[in-house]
Design a protein around this nucleic acid. Sequence first.
DNA 1: CTGTTAGCGCGTTCAC
DNA 2: GTGAACGCGCTAACAG
Lengths: 311, 311
Amino acid sequence: MNLEEVARRAGVSRSTVSRVLNGSTGVSPATRAAVEAAVASLRYLPNQAARSLAGTRTDTVAIVVSEERDRVFDDAFLTGVLRGATSGLAGRRAVVAVNPREVSDVDGALVVSMSGHDPLPRELRVPVVLVGRPLSCGLAYVDSDNLGGGVLAGRHLIARERRRIGVLAGPSDVAACVDRVAGLRRALSSSPPAGVITCALTPDSGAAAMASLLASVPDVNGVFCATDAIAIGALRYLASVGARVPEDVSVVGFDDSLVATVCTPALTTVRQSPDDLGNTAAWRLVAELAGEPDLPQSIVLPTELVVRGSS
Amino acid sequence: MNLEEVARRAGVSRSTVSRVLNGSTGVSPATRAAVEAAVASLRYLPNQAARSLAGTRTDTVAIVVSEERDRVFDDAFLTGVLRGATSGLAGRRAVVAVNPREVSDVDGALVVSMSGHDPLPRELRVPVVLVGRPLSCGLAYVDSDNLGGGVLAGRHLIARERRRIGVLAGPSDVAACVDRVAGLRRALSSSPPAGVITCALTPDSGAAAMASLLASVPDVNGVFCATDAIAIGALRYLASVGARVPEDVSVVGFDDSLVATVCTPALTTVRQSPDDLGNTAAWRLVAELAGEPDLPQSIVLPTELVVRGSS
DNA sequence: CTGTTAGCGCGTTCAC
DNA sequence: GTGAACGCGCTAACAG
């Protein structure tokens, strides 16, 4: 099934069918209709390989997932971004890759990476949109309002009369964590955090960080955790030493992952929408590929405080 | 940068370069070496489009994720399968799709779907390997040993002296759930379950199902849940009516998802490995595409009981 | 063992 | 407004 057959069926030449398929102007309404009828009745689908070989596009974009197992916020984040992205890709093929160097023959790429210093996107010679703010390069990106979320968390802790506030900050090369903590600092401007501990993005690391925090600031009464996974560990450690949450210590997380609703007490946290992140990034990339002018270099999606039992 | 240039550089013809690239036999070691040197020094990458247009393969496989939002075990399952699959695809391109009808120009497909009655895989005119046992078609598949896991759970409840056992079974069209419950029944052969409630794969549905179970079997002292998500809901409901776990009722889940370690009490559950599932399915598909004979029609991966506080 | 040749299906000039 | 002709980069016959 190829252009030739469709052309014969419609009583025109290959070129004309091609023109109709590619929305080119200068085809009389009558022939256009004939061609469309032929296409429909033959259930013709263009051959992608031939199309990209002859033309200049591949109609394929890469979704590059550059992450290590223990450096991901939570799996729901990735799943959400993927779901949102594929649905926003408007008929294009999405190839997923873990290693950017395996990627070729694509029109553009969506890169989701925790690390703010990923050197890889630049190696792709196509338009790139990042999911998550980069720390060190000027590429276009879509991100949650991590700063604003941090501010919300900080104001909430202040409203709860917490004045000895500790921070379990996550890694310093993860932009989202950096921004979240910056937001908290901004909300706390008059009375800076009593202690800041960096840690990995796992419950175990969060528990260990909570232990150090308690050691250096024994009277801490509010804790802001850069991710829910960290907060889970903090809650666990606090329970193990008999500290009451929220009576003795308020705990606030970030992500609103499933575990936030399941742990005891349920976790006050800041919600972001991975689906919207992926969808918006896809939209932005598609728009760029379509040649739309004046596209924003960065897009920031709102976050929202969800108050539960831990504060 | 194309075959022509590489050929010129190596002082041979296009065909010879093509032969070397495709591992065809009958090339003298000397010319092979010359070609490989040229390829390396020019950093030549074959054009995928041209390759699939001329040849019979596309070197890309589809990963079809056919799921609705509320019918997924947990997100970690999907991410795991995806991670395992992409790493097992041995250099092939992986295109992800939600709708199988968007899939064309691929050599084969991996289909991950909860529903056992998915009519879609057959529409793809290429080799297909399913992740998860199909209920109604005879396609090749890779699955966790859900039956065996159910047996493990059943034996465990018996060992805990639980004789009034209820089942929160999940949907009857999800093969994994059906198999898990079948395994439980097998372990309980002498004394069948006191009650079986079907439900959706969400905590809320699990909570509602637990309520019905308690209504019809007030003295239930053991509950097997087809998934951890269901078990979370069951635990929540039991706590709300003041039932003690595990003193009054033992609860066992299935999946060993992250929430199983976070809830209170921590959940006894059966562990499966989504990564291995995806990886094995990819391997099986690649082997079939390579024409390997005598491939197994089904592959079943072991599951493992993880005992925690809830039993 | 190696080179030559003929398309794969399509977009894109060109003429008409 | 429409058709004819060329070539994208490659694989797969076929010669030699």
